[in-house]
Simulated assay, not measured.
Amino acid sequence: MRLTALPAFADNYIWALVADDGRAVVIDPGQAAPVLAAAAQQGWVPNSILLTHHHDDHIGGVAELQAHFPAVEVYAPVEPRIAIPAHRVGEGEHVQALGLGFHVVSVPGHTRSHIAFHTAEHLFSGDSLFSLGCGRMFEGTPPQLLASLRKLASLPAQLMVCCAHEYTLSNAVFARHVDPTNAALSQRHEEALAMRRDDLPTLPVSLASELECNPFLRTNTPAVQAAVSAHLGRPVTDEVDVVAGLRHWKDGFRT
């Protein structure tokens, strides 16, 4: 099974897992054109489409792909704002595609109905988790965001995180501001800079690396808690307070 990242828009990635026989699982196709071009050039056919949430940069290409590939199966969260014929899936359910089991995890925070999918090797996190960051909290609450991040952090550390945006460098600047003495984070930042200089994606990245480097997955550590306390000008009360302060800080952060 071959993993492919298809660039879309300014900084999105549409992920595809392609089997040896050319059938593919496509995740969050916000645009049809990159998928159609790759399918034509490489001779593969979308078999299934997985959607993590309702934002148009994740679902905007589905209708056109359904028109080109009428047999494609679509799996989406229980969300009326996704007005596309689809199998609706939620927490604890499984999607079978190309002989793989995709486990469904409910991760509200960025949106209230956001889900993620993971196999034994890959985590397709949409906008719930980015490398060195997480999605803006548009609809969820800080307790929901913390619970979702904890849920993702508890998955097997060897999973390769396939998130939907190339935000690693901007996230790294903020993360190092929060956690400046983190050697693993410094190394990840340097590696990501080299990747982008060579026009390579910084993804996927192991969940193990994110657990070492991503401040949003490290809200229980003294260094992150102290940084958020200093930013707020008061002691933090618990991890919900930490993640809320961290997310608000990141939303207004400028380099």
Rank of each mutant, 00 (worst) to 15 (best):
P204F: 09
R81F: 07
C134K: 02
S113I: 04
A37D: 10
A86P: 00
V78G: 04
G245R: 05
G99H: 06
V18C: 10
V228E: 02
P143R: 01
P180V: 00
P34V: 02
Q42S: 15
N220T: 11
H114M: 04
D179V: 04
G60M: 03
S131I: 04
P34K: 06
R196T: 13
P29F: 00
V95N: 09
L145N: 08
A244E: 04
A164D: 09
L207F: 13
L169T: 01
I59G: 02
G135D: 06
P85S: 15
F117P: 02
A226W: 08
L65E: 03
L185Q: 00
G109L: 08
H114C: 12
A164T: 06
F216R: 02
A83C: 04
L100F: 10
D199C: 14
G140M: 12
S170A: 15
A86T: 03
F174T: 00
A175I: 02
L3I: 01
R81G: 09
L3Y: 05
T111V: 08
F174H: 09
H87V: 12
N12A: 10
C134I: 02
P201F: 10
L200C: 09
T4R: 15
D198W: 06
L6S: 04
H122L: 14
A208K: 05
S170C: 13
F124G: 03
Q66E: 08
A116M: 14
R197I: 12
G133R: 03
L146V: 08
V236K: 04
P201C: 13
I84T: 09
E212T: 01
V178R: 09
S170D: 11
N12R: 08
L50Y: 07
T237L: 11
L100Q: 07
Q31W: 00
L159S: 07
E64F: 01
A10C: 12
G101K: 14
H103M: 05
A172G: 15
A244S: 13
Q41N: 10
T237N: 15
R150F: 05
L217G: 08
E79W: 02
L51D: 01
N12T: 10
V78Y: 13
A208F: 08
F9L: 09
E239M: 11
N220S: 14
I49D: 06
S48L: 04
N47V: 01
N214K: 06
A8E: 02
R150P: 00
A208S: 11
A157Y: 06
V228Y: 05
V45M: 05
A244L: 05
P70L: 13
V161D: 12
T237S: 09
G30H: 00
V243Q: 03
G22Q: 15
T111G: 13
D198S: 10
V89A: 07
L149T: 07
R150M: 05
